[in-house]
Design a protein around this nucleic acid. Structure first.
Lengths: 109, 109
DNA sequence: AATAAGTATCGTAATATTGCGATATAAAAT
DNA sequence: ATTTTATATCGCAATATTACGATACTTATT
């Protein structure tokens, strides 16, 4: 039907998948890398650098913001976006725990 | 258009987003957790445990397999799926590097 | 007040994802 | 050989995502 059945999964599984989904796009990865490098990001800059239209970038920024991964504060005409430290930490922890749970033992296959 | 413009991004950005996309679904996270715990997974088990139809689970397994995150070997009637250590390591490295690139400095906002 | 600059939102088209019933396939047991 | 068991694939419907032009909004400058 095209609708994820969130009810049957744990809150952790849903939360992690939501965060991952927000990051799982090359444009959004590029945006995040750009924000991290400059530590002071303005959308207008991105429009010139990435090869995407202004509307598209604004939409990607909105998705990252909705997921809580970035936060934006209005600074005059432009908007300054930066990483939301809390969510970033949460992602590092949740994802780190998940990835580390596999110890690489090859009992099967 | 609905088509991601992969051409304008780096190989690293595309690769990382592809891997993340494969994991960014609660059912697939649940499947991976289940595989990791048992270290010997048979699809039939999952059908009973998760609340999804057999066809749906088979499809999720296929996506994980296509992304190279799991590998399956036929064992008689059933198929044994397990983590692909190489891809898992790659994911840990790529993602770890990406997440660690943010140092948490709050110069702005 | 009018204009300019930077972003956000709307509407829309193209494509992708999610989920499932039905059916196919493949190996094991009878 | 037929039936059973386990998994994969097909086809479809519902929904989500991606991208962008056009337009609205919001603040700064003139």
């Amino acid at each position: 039907m095209g609708l994820t059945k969130s009810e049957i999964f744990t809150d952790e599984q849903n939360q992690l998948s939501t965060l991952l989904k927000a990051i799982a796009h090359p444009a959004r990865i590029a945006i995040l890398q750009r924000i991290i490098i400059s530590n002071t990001c303005i959308c207008g800059d991105l429009v010139g650098e990435l090869g995407l239209a202004q509307a598209t970038i604004s939409q990607h920024l909105k998705e990252l913001k909705t997921a809580g991964i970035i936060q934006g504060t209005i600074e005059g005409v432009s908007v300054c976006y930066c990483i939301n430290p809390k969510t970033w930490k949460l992602l590092e922890e949740e994802l780190g725990g998940f990835l580390a749970s596999y110890k690489g033992e090859t009992t099967c296959c």
